[in-house]
Design a protein around this nucleic acid. Structure first.
Length: 280
DNA sequence: AGCTACTCCTGGTAGC
DNA sequence: TGCTACCAGGAGTAGC
């Protein structure tokens, strides 16, 4: 499932194809992708707009739009589970799973493809109205170990659902939370406010390490799902230590990796390396 | 505040 | 072979 590294990879690869292009229309085959805006309203919002800049915020790809050199809102693309975003020649036959297609002024078209229809392509006049509630970017310089430890100390939630909460820290999903908790030797059910200083520091660096390494590998691909926009799979799935490795040996101690369900999410742990908390 | 349950979706797979 | 039942899960929401 696309998380920060997959979204970052996608954004980097399509950015050169999109910056400076003008959107010439909008074909929408699944209206709910637009998140409430009607097809005509969406088309009016994007047609004729110039894509001035691409950036990533959390798991959103942000396309900043301009008209006559003035800000004109933004497209916020969220890939959720199975979304993909890529540019192809406009004449190329589109897959039936393409939910939104935006023809561009150079004969190409931006495609948003999404088998399960969870993904969104939102137009926002003011992008901060959507992005403003998100927590810190884990790879930013401002996200220091001290900042993170102070935030942990003020929360009583279990680490797994807390780290998945995009308002606490932005960009982590099920895979990288499991990997980061394993690296830091912390159990997913551990309460945030019981994490000791050294463990908080370890978790902070584990999060950054896992995300940075995954970006270097262009993300993770499996289940025929996520591909880079060029159709190439990422390779970080070969580096997984616990995620999806139920029953296989822990790379650190050899004990079998166990699968739990925490907050309705499949969760992978080594119970020897990640000591369960006393209380539930 | 923070928990659980439910919703949205569909391809893949297990079981028969 | 062909059917059914169930699973994966990010994020939003409701209810307690």
């Amino acid at each position: 499932m696309p998380e920060l590294p997959e979204v970052e990879t996608t954004m980097r690869l399509i950015r050169p194809q999109l910056e400076g292009r003008t959107i010439t229309g909008a074909d929408v085959s699944w209206a709910r992708t637009l998140g409430g805006l009607t097809r005509p309203a969406f088309e009016r919002a994007v047609q004729g707009a110039r894509i001035a800049r691409l950036r990533r915020r959390a798991k959103h790809i942000v396309l900043e739009l301009e008209r006559d050199g003035l800000e004109a809102g933004a497209l916020l693309v969220h890939l959720r589970m199975t979304g993909r975003l890529y540019v192809e020649p406009a004449a190329a036959p589109a897959s039936p799973y393409v939910r939104v297609r935006l023809p561009l002024d150079d004969g190409t078209a931006l495609h948003f493809l999404d088998v399960r229809k969870f993904g969104r392509v939102l137009f926002a006049r003011e992008p901060e109205s959507v992005l403003g509630t998100l927590g810190p970017e884990p790879l930013d310089d401002a996200f220091t170990a001290d900042v993170f430890r102070n935030a942990l100390r003020r929360r009583r939630r279990m680490l797994k659902p807390l780290l998945l909460d995009q308002t606490f820290v932005a960009g982590l999903g099920n895979i990288y939370v499991d990997e980061a908790l394993f690296l830091a030797r912390l159990h997913p059910l551990r309460r945030a406010d019981t994490v000791r200083k050294a463990q908080g520091i370890a978790l902070h660096s584990a999060i950054r390490e896992v995300l940075a390494a995954a970006i270097e590998h262009q993300g993770s691909s499996f289940d025929t799902f996520y591909r880079t926009p060029e159709g190439q799979p990422g390779s970080y799935q070969h580096e997984f230590r616990v995620y999806g490795r139920t029953g296989k040996p822990c790379p650190r101690c050899g004990a079998p990796v166990r699968r739990l369900v925490v907050g309705q999410r499949g969760t992978h742990v080594c119970l020897r390396c990640q000591r369960p908390p006393r209380t539930r």
